[in-house]
Nucleic acid binder design. Structure first.
Length: 424
RNA sequence: GGAGGAGUGGCCGAGUGGUCUAAGGCAGCGGUUUUGAAAACCGCCGUAUCGCAAGGUACCGGGAGUUCGAAUCUCUCCUCCUCCGCCA
């Protein structure tokens, strides 16, 4: 969501953002509705003013004058009752359109349509050359007994799995490693609710466009979140933050639920694309200053890179093009980890700045030094998402006999286990 | 799940149908006074929206209704509190 005043003044900029982000919205239609809405407000307000005026006159009027006043007041009310539903309808149309207005991409974001237009910025670490044919993670996981594939698919459906034995410990280890690193860097750990009201999803920008991606609980009118970002941002919905509290930096850990609608047939095997996973997510609220936000953005990106470095996983960083960034994002970097089983880099982290997009929708404000209210900026980035991260972790550190030598940093979190060995 | 109670501005709190701008207090800001501070006194002190402005409109947890007129009456939802039941 953007400021309607900004949209009025810069319709071309906004329409360009719509086009570049491959969204669908006519800014001129939006402005037409806005104009009609404002005219409606003016005429309704005038009638309400008259209504209030008459209501004040009635008790002061003499017995003789009173019936005429009440009669006029009734007439005004009838007129209002005719106008108000139209106004409500108009306002709803306006609100719906406003929810589809994208934020403006930052100048450094390349204009493009799809993944192929993302721009690689750097590669860090060198993919290992194997003296044997490396196994993919499905074979490794199966050989090491880290997951049960078949059981869950029978009772929970496709894209489900159960981490078992050291597989379960491994997920706890990588998430705990990530949390410890982030706490060390000053983020506040949070375990938030994952069952939320619609307003949290609208407020963070996942709804209405991403409605199909969320699991719904219709009996209670609730939804399962696809990321703890939804809860961490909503934590401050309707708040007026103390400027001294900014920046607020959280790291949330939660299960994440995604229907993966529209991905049918894609990545159906293994741990890459699943309906339920665990993610440690970083979320920041900061003052609405592009320089400050940029600094926070690269700090979050750096945190994710530091975690990958600890796990000794080669990766590359790319800046996503306009066609690949979401409605609210003004800038997004993707971190892709090297997955030998794919012989390719694949996305494991996503770092975004959203400007005041989420703050506007969630009504999160802070009081500036001069006493006026302003919307803060929000940012977020994956710290670690498991089990997807287990793919590069296992594949990069595998040995010829199917065992996996764990990176040193992980050993303390694995009760001292240094090597995962295949079942006999 | 059942029964009861409560939600008013940054905070406390008055207000159960009509003095148009929701009393009062606290906190905050500006000023007078003072060597300085405190105290005292005076003034300012919610948000959104429409308008060039004057000014208007909306908001007393959310939504709907009754009425010429609703913070106040009715319905409904949400949140919190108390008790009962169930439960990791």
């Amino acid at each position: 969501m953007l400021d309607i005043a900004f949209i009025r003044q810069n319709p071309d900029l906004v329409q360009a953002a719509v086009t570049n982000k491959r969204q669908e919205l006519s800014v001129s239609d939006l402005l037409a509705v806005d104009k009609e809405r404002r005219e409606g407000i003016a005429s309704i307000d005038a009638k309400r003013a008259r209504k209030n005026q008459l209501a004040a006159l009635v008790p002061k009027a003499s017995k003789e004058e009173r019936p005429a006043l009440i009669e006029e007041a009734k007439a005004v009310r009838t007129e209002l009752e005719a106008l108000e539903p139209k106004m409500t309808e108009l306002q709803k149309r306006f609100d719906d359109m406003m929810l589809r207005v994208p934020s403006l991409p930052r100048p450094e974001v390349p204009i493009g349509k799809g993944e192929e237009d993302n721009v690689e910025l750097r590669k860090v670490g060198t993919p290992r050359t194997f003296s044997f044919t490396p196994k993919d993670h499905v074979d490794l996981v199966t050989g090491l007994g880290l997951a049960n594939w078949d059981g869950p698919r029978k009772f929970a459906g496709g894209r489900s799995y159960a981490l078992t034995g050291m597989g379960a410990i491994l997920e706890m280890a990588v998430t705990r490693l990530a949390i410890d690193m982030l706490v060390e860097r000053g983020l506040t750990p949070v375990i938030p609710p994952v069952i939320v009201r619609e307003r949290a999803l609208v407020g963070t920008g996942f709804f209405p466009l991403g409605r199909e991606e969320a699991y719904a609980i219709p009996a209670d009118d609730l939804y399962l979140v696809g990321t703890s970002e939804v809860a961490l941002v909503s934590l401050h919905a309707d708040d007026i933050l103390d400027p001294a509290s900014l920046p607020i930096r959280y790291c949330g850990m939660s299960p994440c639920f995604r229907r993966e609608a529209g991905a049918s047939g894609k990545d159906t095997k293994g741990l890459y694309r699943v309906h339920q996973f665990t993610k440690v997510e970083q979320v920041v609220f900061c003052v609405p200053d592009e320089e400050v936000a940029e600094k926070e953005h690269y700090t979050l990106l750096g945190n994710a890179e530091a975690i990958l470095a600890k796990l000794e996983i080669p990766y590359r960083v790319a800046i996503a093009c306009t066609g690949e960034i979401g409605l609210g994002q003004t800038r997004k970097h993707e971190v892709e980890s090297w997955m030998p089983g794919r012989n390719a880099y694949a996305e494991t982290h996503s770092c975004s700045t959203l400007g005041d997009f989420q703050a506007r929708r969630s009504n999160i404000r802070f009081r500036k030094e001069d006493g006026t209210l302003a919307f803060p900026f929000t940012l977020n980035n994956t710290a670690i998402a498991s089990p997807r991260i287990l793919i590069p972790l296992l594949e990069n550190h595998q040995n010829e006999d199917g065992s996996v030598t764990l990176p040193k940093a992980l050993v303390p979190y694995m009760n001292g286990v240094e090597v995962l060995r295949p079942k006999a």
